[in-house]
Simulated scan of single mutants.
Amino acid sequence: MIGRTLAGQSILIAVVCMAVDGAGAAMTGLPVHWPAGAALAVLVVVVDAALALPVRLSGWVATAHAAAVVVTAVVVRITVNLHGTGGHQISVGESHVGALVAGYRAGAWLRRWPSLLSLGALVVGMAASRCFHPGASVLSVVMVAATNALLPWLVGRYTTGRRAYIDELQHRSENERRDAEAAVEAAVSRERSAIARDLHDVISHHVSAIGMHAGAARLGLTARGTGDRVTGSLSAVEAASRAAMVDLRKLLDVLHGTSDGANQPGLANLDELVTGVRPAGPAVRLTVHGGSRPLPGSLDVALYRVAQEMLTNALRHGDGTTVDLEIRYRTDAVTVAARNGIGRGARVAALASDGRGLAGIRTRAAMFDGSVNYGPDESRKRWETSVTVSTGSLEGAS
């Protein structure tokens, strides 16, 4: 569609130039019955008709116009010298509309060197034609070459440069738009991953605790005189269920935008976390080394989730004995570590590749450039997991 429009416009421009330059050729003052006058009119019409050709031929079209301008001037001067003016006022082809358009096309559509060669041909042609004009001076020659060749060529180059600049701006704007969309998509993806990790930690921890308590209650029902144990286990199931619902509501509030996450738990809530785990069976010993201090909110929540996942792994894969949970505050770092016995049915290789649990711990530590270490001890009977995060560059964060 665009190609057809450009072709139609080229034909219209060629027709207008043919009419204007043809009339100009007839106005050179040569008698109409002279063969030279008719030949010039035909020449001008032919070269102007070439303006309808494809733009890739603009260099040849410009060269043809330059030659036509020179031929017109030479024919007029020779005819006048041979036959005189016959009382007519003779002018040497003052109409160069087609040559102007040809110069513009050469500047606008051609590449650097073909365009410069076309400009050279037009400048030489215009200057040479002016030299055949009576009373021509150096200044007039320069003015004709500049006005009829250089100026339209420069306008063409300017148009091309402006079009390229606009295209570059549009391309840059499109790239920026795509980059912005990609950034938004990446942010959404990261947020989804963070929410998925939180949901995994919350659900996995509380459901594991519920399962342990339910198992303890089932075993307690088979023995006599264990009413207190059954009641304690069922109470723990109820407490774990309520805690799960509270944590889920907090996460849903963040998703709905009704909370900024400020009410998320942190290391100060580890006592509550440990209290909820102890009735499930394993004895959890929480030890804090060094003076506890406030941490940036996001880091505080992340380390709490790490400790929560460590306890969940101990419930799922441990042997039900003591779980040691340690928090070590140092001047420029904080470490969360857990140690627990490996259950009889749990293989070390399976623990090391335990999908989402350890992956979630690694991801949370990586968010703060922290280090993660996990694996069995030398006896291969106890599992150790530790996360250390430097706080030197985070002290001013909120």
Rank of each mutant, 00 (worst) to 15 (best):
residue 251 L to D: 06
residue 222 T to I: 02
residue 278 R to F: 01
residue 207 V to T: 13
residue 240 A to F: 10
residue 289 H to P: 03
residue 222 T to W: 02
residue 226 T to D: 06
residue 265 P to E: 09
residue 192 R to D: 11
residue 237 V to M: 12
residue 189 S to G: 14
residue 284 V to T: 10
residue 250 K to F: 00
residue 267 L to M: 13
residue 305 R to K: 03
residue 216 A to S: 13
residue 289 H to Y: 10
residue 308 Q to G: 07
residue 190 R to K: 09
residue 192 R to K: 12
residue 286 L to M: 06
residue 227 G to L: 08
residue 280 A to S: 15
residue 214 A to V: 15
residue 225 G to K: 02
residue 225 G to I: 02
residue 230 V to I: 13
residue 200 H to P: 00
residue 223 A to L: 09
residue 194 A to C: 01
residue 263 N to C: 01
residue 288 V to R: 14
residue 303 L to I: 00
residue 237 V to C: 13
residue 305 R to V: 06
residue 219 L to N: 10
residue 206 H to M: 03
residue 281 G to V: 07
residue 247 D to L: 03
residue 295 L to I: 03
residue 202 V to Q: 03
residue 234 L to K: 03
residue 204 S to H: 15
residue 187 A to G: 13
residue 228 D to N: 10
residue 246 V to P: 00
residue 186 A to T: 13
residue 263 N to V: 05
residue 238 E to P: 00
residue 275 T to R: 06
residue 212 M to C: 11
residue 285 R to F: 01
residue 242 R to V: 10
residue 273 L to T: 07
residue 227 G to T: 15
residue 262 A to W: 04
residue 195 I to F: 15
residue 214 A to H: 08
residue 300 D to V: 01
residue 261 G to A: 06
residue 233 S to N: 12
residue 282 P to V: 06
residue 279 P to R: 06
residue 268 A to S: 15
residue 215 G to W: 01
residue 194 A to Y: 03
residue 206 H to I: 00
residue 248 L to P: 01
residue 236 A to L: 02
residue 294 P to F: 13
residue 239 A to G: 04
residue 202 V to P: 01
residue 202 V to N: 09
residue 205 H to S: 00
residue 293 R to D: 07
residue 198 D to T: 08
residue 199 L to W: 08
residue 277 V to H: 08
residue 288 V to I: 14
residue 182 A to L: 11
residue 288 V to Y: 03
residue 287 T to K: 08
residue 265 P to M: 11
residue 200 H to Y: 14
residue 247 D to V: 00
residue 196 A to V: 11
residue 224 R to F: 05
residue 191 E to R: 12
residue 270 L to C: 08
residue 218 R to K: 08
residue 295 L to W: 07
residue 286 L to I: 05
residue 186 A to F: 03
residue 266 G to W: 09
residue 230 V to A: 05
residue 211 G to P: 02
residue 238 E to A: 10
residue 234 L to H: 05
residue 300 D to G: 04
residue 203 I to V: 15
residue 306 V to P: 01
residue 193 S to N: 11
residue 219 L to K: 11
residue 212 M to K: 14
residue 197 R to T: 04
residue 296 P to R: 01
residue 199 L to A: 06
residue 199 L to E: 01
residue 250 K to A: 10
residue 245 M to D: 06
residue 217 A to L: 07
residue 187 A to F: 04
residue 220 G to C: 01
residue 191 E to T: 12
residue 284 V to G: 09
residue 202 V to C: 02
residue 289 H to M: 05
residue 260 D to Q: 05
residue 183 A to M: 11
residue 217 A to K: 05
residue 216 A to R: 15
residue 189 S to N: 13
residue 259 S to W: 10
residue 195 I to M: 12
residue 221 L to D: 02
residue 244 A to H: 12
residue 289 H to N: 13
residue 215 G to D: 02
residue 296 P to G: 05
residue 300 D to E: 02
residue 252 L to Q: 13
residue 287 T to D: 08
residue 286 L to Y: 00
residue 239 A to D: 09
residue 301 V to H: 06
residue 203 I to W: 13
residue 213 H to I: 02
residue 278 R to D: 09
residue 290 G to N: 05
residue 227 G to S: 14
residue 213 H to A: 14
residue 264 Q to R: 15
residue 287 T to E: 07
residue 239 A to P: 03
residue 216 A to G: 08
residue 299 L to S: 06
residue 248 L to Q: 09
residue 260 D to E: 13
residue 294 P to G: 12
residue 236 A to G: 15
